[in-house]
Amino acid sequence: MKLQFVTSGLRTTTQDLGRPGHTHMGVPSGGALDRSAMRYANHLVGNALGAPVLEVTLSGPHLRCLEGGRVALIGSGFDLLLNGEPQRALLPISVNPGDELVIKSSENGCRAYLSVSGEWRAERWLGSASALRIGSHELVPGAIWIRGDILETRDRSVEPWPSTLLPPQPPSDIIRVSPGPEYEWLDEHGRAQLLSKRIRVIDPSNRVGLRTNTQVQLREDKRRVEMVSSGVQPGTVQLTHGGQAIILMRDGQTIGGYPRVLQCASQSLDQLAHLKVGDELILSLIDS
């Protein structure tokens, strides 16, 4: 299949399962923020579930088909238009040369995933095709899509196989968390300020981390403690000195010096992909 970018959208990148195993060099594992959406999109077009997909952020690209194949879009708040006609959700779409594809965001969309049938000819770094931006520096330049680029895959005529894979759940704003290593640094008051209440995502928030409008105080005796830097992961909720909770995302730092008060459940990480500035969420402690 061959698709040309007529427009790129706000930020459209290649993402796959990321590059675990390099955090000792400071390289985050990264990869598609919503793994279940990525897998299901790949499943629909007959690709390996961890094959690269396009990750769309806030506004989607306009693509022109040069060689036919199948695509599938998974992403709440986005519509896939084929020659101007909205397509049914959760189905693969056959596309022919000359067709125009537009990924259109409705009011709520933050991220969507487009799978493209066939084997990707993607630049890989440390075993992954995923884009990674550090500051203004793109570490995998071939994973960034701009106007005029051509995405080409080598056809393999694999039909989607019958599978027990279920479509991803619609995103929820309830994020399940467990206590982090410094959870005890919060007293009852601090826990009440952070847990089981609506908090808002504020700017800047991106694939590195989600900032929130929280002002949470640590226990009195912990407020001036300088921590020795220690490992963090995607989904770690750090509290800055100013009391702001930052939820680390998949391109986040690998070690940090702020108290790690909570850790999001793995299954909640996918939901974080769909939270944009202004959205609200609830951190909910898992009963143990």
Partner: peptide
């Protein structure tokens, strides 16, 4: 084990549940 992250006096060990 999928990866380990050493830092000063701690080691983060990530695994596949």
């Amino acid at each position: 084990i999928t990866q380990t992250t050493p830092s000063y006096n701690s080691l983060l060990v990530s695994f596949e549940p």
